[in-house]
Design a binder for these strands. Structure first.
Lengths: 198, 198
DNA sequence: AAAAAGTGTCTATTTAATAGACGTTACATA
DNA sequence: TATGTAACGTCTATTAAATAGACACTTTTT
């Protein structure tokens, strides 16, 4: 009998998570106390400890869920393997961008120094993971390069774009931003093969 | 034994209220269903009916609470009667502006047509009520005018400024905006007497 | 006309949230 | 250094808020 998470429980967790996000922006992660969190979210302090050991576990849980969601967002649009030429890339290929935008309240946290622990490293790492596991690239003119490096280069390039997009407050629309990404992709790769979901 | 509202109950109500605000902005008040609200807020539909009869009662409750808060915000800074010359008006006199700003998520609803019922009439009415009950004005040069009219004129003038401020997305800072209001006040009144709290 | 979606009301059930106390640690400041 | 205060982490017993699910009904959609 695996205890399934009930709606109530999840809801409470999410409220605690949201409180944490707000408070980090207000005073920085290290200054946020458990008391602050429950005060803001209007829960009893006892309730916090039912769900989490401490604020670090809460932060970890929040981070994991967001990054898991990021990975899953990519797996959504297609059900089968399909190869896509860079010049045919369409908006559906970039669910990841919608996901970031929809969860901008969270992703804005990368603009803060004193923020969720490991956010600044694990966010780009996750993008890399997605690129490694779900896509296969082809260089222009079949240039013989180490594909590990190429994938890494491409993933972190994308991270650079997306973090700038977040930094500027999403001033270009999702559509425009996707167009930019596509154009930049075309400068150094010939095709991209989506490997589908497990 | 008057049943006192428990923290839990209030929290749930607030979440339902927040859900309503979001959904009104998304699809308009008339299109929002009870089901939408509980889905968004992640509550059981039964739970909704524990707290409210229908979405209208929820909207009414939300509106009342916000307008009550607006009134109370004025009563906060001072504890005793004090007269203030318009040219001495300071920021503390304008708690009301902070209140609107702090609750901009709600007050932004005046930008929508299909919004909380009666919001567009009761918001200015409340400002008028505050002006009538908590302040006493003096015209420039003691011009003999009907003070009922004068108060009404002043209140709705202020409403005009504040609704514009909301409309423009609070593009001028609270401080700048307060300065503007003070300047405009000085064009037609000599002093303002704060009548304190009950 | 049929199907689908939403409403309002009502049960019985459970469990998440609560209050409150405890000894502890961390930290400011007098 | 001593002292007060604020937050911590853990633990109870209690309760009432939230839940699932069924009901007949109305509205909207197709």
């Amino acid at each position: 009998m695996h205890a399934h998470p009930t709606p109530r429980k999840n809801r409470t967790k999410r409220h605690l998570q949201q409180a944490l996000i707000t408070l980090i922006k207000e005073k920085g992660f290290h200054s946020v106390s458990v008391k602050d969190i429950v005060q803001y979210a209007e829960y009893n302090r006892s309730t916090f400890y039912i769900h989490y050991q401490d604020k670090f576990e809460l932060a970890e849980d929040l981070l994991c869920e967001m990054l898991k969601g990021l990975e899953q967002s990519v797996g959504k649009p297609y059900r089968s393997i399909q190869a896509v030429h860079t010049d045919q890339l369409n908006k559906r290929s970039f669910q990841i961008i919608s996901y970031v935008y929809d969860n901008r309240n969270f992703f804005d946290l990368i603009n803060y120094q004193d923020t969720i622990p490991e956010l600044h490293t694990r966010f780009p790492q996750t993008i890399l993971k997605i690129y490694q596991e779900k896509f296969e690239f082809k260089t222009l003119h079949n240039l013989p390069v180490d594909m590990n490096y190429f994938t890494r280069y491409t993933a972190y390039g994308f991270y650079g774009l997306i973090s700038n997009w977040i930094n500027t407050g999403y001033e270009t629309s999702q559509e425009e931003f996707i167009d930019e990404v596509i154009k930049l992709s075309q400068t150094h790769m010939a095709s991209l093969r989506y490997l589908g979901v497990d």
